[in-house]
Write a protein that binds this DNA or RNA. Sequence first.
DNA 1: GTCTATACAGGGATAGAC
DNA 2: GTCTATCCCTGTATAGAC
Lengths: 191, 191
Amino acid sequence: MAKRKDISLTDLLDSAQELIRHRGPGGFSFRDLAAEVGISSASLHHHFPTKDDLLSAVVLRHRDAWNRRFAALAAETEDWPRRWGLLSTKFASPSLDGYLLGMLAANFGSLPPASQNETQLLHSNLTGWLARFVTEAKKRDELPQETDVEAMAHALLSMLQGGLLLGRIGAPGVMDGALRQTDEWLEHPRS
Amino acid sequence: MAKRKDISLTDLLDSAQELIRHRGPGGFSFRDLAAEVGISSASLHHHFPTKDDLLSAVVLRHRDAWNRRFAALAAETEDWPRRWGLLSTKFASPSLDGYLLGMLAANFGSLPPASQNETQLLHSNLTGWLARFVTEAKKRDELPQETDVEAMAHALLSMLQGGLLLGRIGAPGVMDGALRQTDEWLEHPRS
DNA sequence: GTCTATACAGGGATAGAC
DNA sequence: GTCTATCCCTGTATAGAC
C-alpha cells in the first residue's frame, strides 16, 4: 500500500457531485467519498483540505459547465422555443445535474462560506443566462413585449428547481406536469 | 433542578419546525432543540424517543395545518383569482412555513422512514387541494377548459417551492418575480 | 418529566511514516 | 500521493436518580 493511485481530479469531483446531488452537502462524509473513489479520507484531505474546499470546487466546476452549456446553446440557435426546449430538457434529465442548485439552496444556511459564495454565483449565472434569452426572445417578438425579463427568468428557474426538488419525493409526473404547463403558458402568450 | 417544567408540546413542535425550516432536518440536533426550549436533550428524548418521531410529528402537524388552511380558504371564496391570491401570499410569507416541504424534499433521501412517509402525504395533500381548486376554476370558466389539472397543480406548487428555495440563497426578488410572472400567466389565459 | 452522566458511532481534520 | 492511526467534537440515544 501507500502507492500512488493518482486519482484523477475529475473522478473525484464527479463522485462528490453525485453525492451532493443524492444526499446533500451535509449528507456525506469525507470517508464516504474516499471509500467511493478508493482512497483513504486522509488522502482526500490532501486534495481538498477542508470540506468547504471540496464543495466549492464542485460548485465552481458545475457553474462552468452550465455556462459552457448555455453559451453553446446560445450559439446553436436564436429561436426561443427551441432554446427553452433544449434547456428544460437538460434540466429535467435525471442523469444531468440540474438538482445541484436546489440541494445547495435548501442547505444554504449550513454551507461553509466559500461554498455559499459559489452557490450564489451559480444562481446568478443561471438567472443571467435565462434573462438574456428572454430579452432576446422579446426582441424577436417570440415573447410579449410587456414581459418582465427578471420576473420571467425567476419564474422559469423556480419552476425548474421546484419541479426537480418535488420530484425527489417520489410522486410521479411532477416535473413532467410542471414542464407541460409551462410550455402551455409560453407557447400561448396572452392575446 | 429536576422539577417538571411541563414544556408544552406546541412550543416544542414550534421550535422544531423553525429549526427544520432554517437548517433542514439534519441541520439541528436534539441538543440544539433542547437548549432552545430550555430542557435537556434527555428530556427531549422522553417526548420524542427518536428523531424520526420528532420530525414526523412536526410534518404531521404541518400537514394538518395546511389542510385546515385550505379548507378554510375553500369555504371563504369560490373565486379562483382570489383563492390563488390568498394562497400564494400564504406561501410567500416568510413568517409562515411554506419552506418546510422544500426542505424536506431536498433532504428526502436522508429522512428516516416515518418522516419520509409524512412528507409524501404532505406533498400529495397540497397537490390534491391545488388540483381541486384548479378543477373548480375550470368549472367556473376562470381557467381554460383545456387546462390539464394535474399539470397545473404540479406547476404551481413547483413554482412556489422553487421560489421559496431559491430565495434562501439571498438574491432579492426571486419569489416576487416568480409570483408576478405566474399571475401574469394565470390572469391572461390564452386567447 | 426532568435531570446528570455516559455510551457509542460518526463527523472533520491532522501527524507522520512510506 | 497515499497510508495508518489518532484527536476532538458532535450526533443520537440510554441508564438511572430524583
